[in-house]
């Protein structure tokens, strides 16, 4: 579905309407950096697109990877690469971010910090964020609207309402999820 939204794959049965000139920041599930290409983290974050060095440095700092900025991408761990892609996507002043399992490889406390950072980013930059994730605890705690997919849309709505639906219970059982308190003025 995300690939369809991004225009990477086209399904003739689907219709996608995209605002003209919409800038999308994308974080794929995984990046396998080419070990023959000596590209530093900073250069990667600045590659192709309108961004400034200051903004990139700020994002790297906020995501806690500033000290790695001169390291070649192929020497970074999985979690560091995910943060690098997030820094790149958020440095480009996108209108919308599409994140596919964005924090796989990042430890749990790091994930919570980054979800909180993404929430702040969404509000301060009026940027919508679409996250695909299998991590229900984090999704339920950090998002404003949840859509559960199992070949088709099974249930959707605000997190606290979705967990009470029968469709949700049929899909995931009756596990209790941590629903962190958050206001709903943002657009993610």
């Amino acid at each position: 579905m995300l690939q369809g939204l991004l225009g990477l794959h086209w399904d003739s049965r689907a219709s996608i309407y995209r605002m003209r000139g919409l800038r999308i920041g994308y974080v794929p599930q995984k990046l396998n950096p080419n070990s023959l290409l000596p590209l530093s983290l900073r250069r990667f974050a600045m590659l192709c697109g309108s961004t400034s060095r200051e903004l990139v440095e700020k994002r790297l700092e906020e995501l806690g990877i500033a000290e790695l900025s001169n390291r070649p991408l192929y020497t970074l761990s999985g979690g560091e690469l995910q943060k690098a892609m997030l820094a790149r996507a958020t440095s480009k002043q996108a209108d919308c971010l599409i994140l596919d399992e964005p924090l796989s490889g990042v430890d749990e406390s790091g994930q919570q910090k980054i979800y909180a950072w993404l929430k702040r980013y969404s509000r301060t930059h009026s940027c919508s964020i679409l996250i695909a994730s299998h991590d229900l605890h984090l999704v339920m705690g950090a998002t404003d609207r949840v859509v559960c997919l199992d070949r088709r849309i099974r249930c959707e709505g605000k997190a606290h309402a979705v967990v009470r639906t029968t469709a949700f219970a049929n899909l995931f059982g009756k596990t209790r999820y941590a629903l962190y308190a958050h206001d709903h003025s943002g657009s993610n």
Binding site: L8, Y26, L31, N34, L37, G49
Partner: peptide, 15 residues
């Protein structure tokens, strides 16, 4: 563009 494509075709196309 070629460098970005070498890293990830999906990233290049999505941009």
């Amino acid at each position: 563009a070629v460098i970005l494509d070498v890293l990830s075709r999906d990233l290049a196309l999505s941009e």
